[in-house]
Design a protein around this nucleic acid. Structure first.
Lengths: 215, 215
DNA sequence: CTAGGATGGATAGCAGTACTTTCTACTATC
DNA sequence: GATAGTAGAAAGTACTGCTATCCATCCTAG
């Protein structure tokens, strides 16, 4: 297909597709003449993946490039690709030096029986969260972490099962991307629903009225 | 205290504080003379909260303003404030018209016994996620939702307990903000850790070597 | 009491991001 | 051979989140 069809089928403007090509988020089309290229369904698929990351995941172009790099690297193990992707999805490292927060994370990891270097992205992200919590006067926030871990464990298992159910390694890697980007968004939405339901129920106990009602 | 001290204590440049004042993220200081103002610990606290939302939560200035609006509105119930905050934290509405995705969400809500209008933010967010999943060829992603719900339920309960443990209503509302913004970040980090641990364990089974090792 | 630095308030500027527009020299198609 | 579409490059744009500069005070150390 030509670029116009790629645009029509994906809903992405031609100019934007050209921009993504320039930025290396999409491989160049197969040139049939010096200024004529053909694009495949592969391109369409990749384009939709890029849009999902940008629109739903809120990733920057640079972050998308990194994720795609991990996805395309045939050397990279699933394990390592997951790390790259998690790091790209999350806010940039704030680099906290809060000793108490460090200690809280260390203790948390030990309680969970998890092993993790303090240099890994996820460790630093957690420290950043706890340091921030302390700054805004919520030292007790750390107590919620074990609950988060209990919730995260079965989720991670389901994610991994989902990913390993894929046929090829490429599919599995893409599953990781989808599971991370869409998964975070889905988790946030479902958490919001659950909170809503709960606080709605509480509210109904106090003032019996309609069940659930915000915009 | 004066603006320089506010800056020093928060680590935020004076120019940026002035910007936040202009944007209405911080209330004006108490004027002691036509061009001299005093700021309180309240200001410092609010400033740190703003930074947490901007840096950790990645919220835009406009979103922060909305959240603070909900926080300061004495009319607003906890329940409604939670909706406003969830909406501000998440990516903007994509407005999908994917009928299958709608149906998947409806079925999911029914399975969970949750009641929710299709106009509510969380409902639309979920539809957006599932529509995107389908676009990138992951129709089966919807099957993971129930697992997400099972994980979200106890989390929501813990969050609510945490919030209701607060003294005043203001503190509770702030707890909602912290719980949502920091909670989402923490959940993403903990999920990453859990996945890491799991896939690391799988890897170790196949190739027995060092336990856990990405940057 | 005065000099020098800080302050509030206003306006303008600036760097980064994610596109869009415009251009030119082709090519494909009717 | 007119018309529309295309690749590729370069410049332009809209927006966001700050920064920098100014100026008329103000406060404070000497």
């Amino acid at each position: 297909m030509r670029i116009a069809e790629l645009s029509r089928r994906s809903g992405v403007p031609v100019a934007t597709i050209k921009y993504y090509l320039r930025e290396g988020l999409l491989p160049a089309g197969e040139l049939t003449s010096p200024n004529q290229a053909r694009y495949s369904d592969e391109h369409l698929h990749r384009l939709r993946l890029v849009r999902a990351m940008v629109e739903l995941g809120g990733l920057s172009i640079a972050a998308v490039r990194e994720v795609l790099g991990a996805l395309d690297d045939p050397e990279k193990s699933l394990h390592k690709a997951m790390g790259t992707i998690s790091a790209a999805v999350a806010p940039p490292d704030l680099g906290s030096d809060d000793e108490v927060a460090h200690e809280q994370v260390r203790a948390f990891l030990e309680r969970q029986g998890w092993v993790c270097r303090p240099t890994s992205y996820a460790y630093k992200a957690l420290v950043g969260v706890l340091a921030t919590a302390r700054e805004v006067g919520h030292e007790g926030f750390a107590d919620l972490l074990d609950g988060y871990a209990d919730a995260a464990r079965p989720l991670a298992e389901a994610d991994l099962r989902y990913v390993l159910g894929a046929g090829s390694k490429d599919e599995a890697l893409e599953g990781v991307v989808v599971g991370t980007v869409l998964g975070d968004a889905a988790m946030a939405a479902v958490r919001a629903l659950a909170r809503r339901e709960l606080s709605g129920a509480r509210k109904a106990e106090e003032t019996p009225s309609e069940p659930c009602s915000d915009p």
